[in-house]
Write a protein that binds this DNA or RNA. Structure first.
Lengths: 339, 339
DNA sequence: CTGAAAGCGCTTACAG
DNA sequence: CTGAAAGCGCTTACAG
């Protein structure tokens, strides 16, 4: 491989001049510039990215850590980040924490070691605030994606992008109550996850606004797998078969939870929407093709990824800008499962 | 940040010794070693990955280029690659070609510039053989994933991992013909894609073996979007409504193609399996939950990703090993759509 | 068993 | 407008 020295000697200039021509970082006489460029071409020279990064402050790469690469919503976010990164000449380093704070920490350290210019993280459920502190110590630009920071000490300083869960949940509750559903079983999952916590709080708020009580028996929280959700929902439905507390609608707060709940409904002999209405956040791909056709709050996952990169670029260009929190609106696909 | 010089002076040794202790690359007296290690701890020293990579032959990173990050099968492969890479201490650089050979080429060049230790590529449909030659010129270890190389000049030298399309297709054709389906509409997509080409060839072979003719009208190839597939299938079904050439079963060779075909069936008023049997490769997630329940050839996408990393590691450890081609078996999920 | 020193391929003050 | 040279933080022959 040709080096900058080869180019310089072939062009009859110093390596500084070659460097400045390549980076357009100080004025060089047009004809000198041309000699350099043809020497580059003649030697097939390609700048060594590693050596370059070692001298400069940046590596032109960013790191992305997601909490569950299996979920389709996260796959779309990754896709969006990749797309936006590529368009801006940034390489993408990808890691998956699999909801494990230890793996998350290790991934972040590995990315810091590689000196990525910035980090985008969708945090694991049990992620510690220590992680955020660590990244701030390193003065490494950070954007929180989907899994946002609570309004604690760190939150004010961090760029974040997520969806507006409050408005989506309000619209969904409105949709259901207008149709006469007053006993809605909410399956909310792990409340340490900010988006799930927000959906949970918004649900309770929206119900209260409408003067509807939400008995504890209709709040199904804390399950983190489809199998566990299946069991929980099954027991709720079985227990309440006889009494008037039985829900008339079920609202799942993620794809995984929806899968568990739907299996429980099937198992217990319910039909959607015949004997039970059903709606979900995130949901399934190609929902239009299948029965039951499920009303779904679809988050703009790809755009979330793109926006995360935008925020990061903004931060790189202006390290002292005030922190920005972006909330994108979800789209609600109304279908026959709640008709 | 502390450097190796800081550690060396604190421990009262040379930087060579520190380096050798850290890399375990030559014998060092136990007590010297200990002094070094506590100096490392005291200074909070962390080896500079960039500087290290510049001197060594490797960067402990690999590059992955996929052709369609949107498809769930590819998302799972990415997931598998990430998992296996992390377990082996390798960072993963991810890029998406979006089926565009130019973007694919650019992505590969960017990864080569970053000196990844090896490449894993699921090639774009129109990918040129030039790309493979280029990578071989650079002597960069390469594993082809899912989209394999034809048996051309390059193929013999390249590690590859894909699924056994032949056996899966044979089993599927068997399943259908045993149930009396002799006129099967095959929707095969872009035949430049090796896996789709293999499914196409295997279908024709399996039909021929059973003495069944396949009229050209029942081979629907070349559509690359769900919308185009929708139109094509619609016209085939409309055209053949009256005559005895109408298929009794449809077989889609990818998720995208299946989506287009199912929409066409819905639009034309067919019911699955009532008036048309249906099966697909790849297919939809959570297929058990929805109607119609579709018979699906499920490829082990995650394992494909893992295996690709295994092949790459093997190649890194033994550059002169003979090329290996791995074929994993798919699992066929038989459901009511073909009952 | 260990150290002094060269060198990886760049960028960037410094100097003219 | 350009060049000579230092230096980024490591690894690795070379020498003893």
């Amino acid at each position: 491989m040709a080096t900058i020295v080869d180019v310089a000697s072939l062009a009859g200039v110093s390596t500084s001049t070659v460097s400045h021509v390549l980076n357009d970082t100080r004025h060089v006489e047009p004809e000198t510039k041309e000699r350099v460029m043809s020497a580059v071409k003649a030697t097939g020279y390609r700048r060594d990215v590693l050596a370059r990064s070692m001298r400069r402050a940046r590596t032109d790469s960013i790191g992305l850590v997601v909490s569950d690469a299996g979920e389709p919503a996260f796959a779309d976010m990754v896709h969006g980040v990749e797309e936006a990164a590529a368009q801006n000449g940034l390489s993408l380093l990808l890691a998956n924490s699999a909801e494990d704070p230890a793996r998350e920490r290790a991934a972040v350290e590995a990315l810091l070691d590689r000196r990525v210019d910035g980090l985008i993280i969708a945090r694991a459920a049990g992620s510690s605030a220590g992680l955020l502190k660590r990244i701030r110590e390193e003065k490494k630009p950070l954007v929180l994606l989907d899994r946002l920071a609570d309004l604690d000490a760190e939150a004010g300083h961090i760029d974040q992008v997520g969806v507006n869960n409050q408005s989506a949940m309000a619209a969904l509750v409105d949709h259901l109550t207008v149709r006469g559903h007053e006993r809605i079983l909410l399956i909310s999952g792990d409340l340490r996850v900010s988006s799930l916590r927000e959906r949970y709080d918004s649900f309770r708020g929206a119900m209260e606004e409408r003067g509807l009580e939400v008995p504890a028996g209709l709040l199904c929280e804390g399950t983190v797998t489809a199998a566990a959700t299946f069991e929980r929902v099954r027991s709720v439905l079985g227990r309440s078969t006889q009494n008037r507390e039985r829900p008339t609608a079920i609202l799942a707060c993620s794809t995984l939870l929806a899968a568990g709940a739907l299996r429980a409904l099937q198992h217990e002999g319910f039909r959607v929407p015949g004997t039970m209405a059903f709606a979900t956040f995130d949901g399934f791909t190609y929902s239009d093709l299948f029965q039951p056709q499920i009303t779904t709050v679809r988050q703009p996952a790809f755009q979330l990824g793109e926006s995360a990169v935008s925020l990061l670029l903004r931060r790189l260009n202006n390290p002292s800008a005030p922190a920005k929190i972006l909330r994108l609106e979800s789209q609600i696909e109304f279908r026959s499962s709640t008709s």
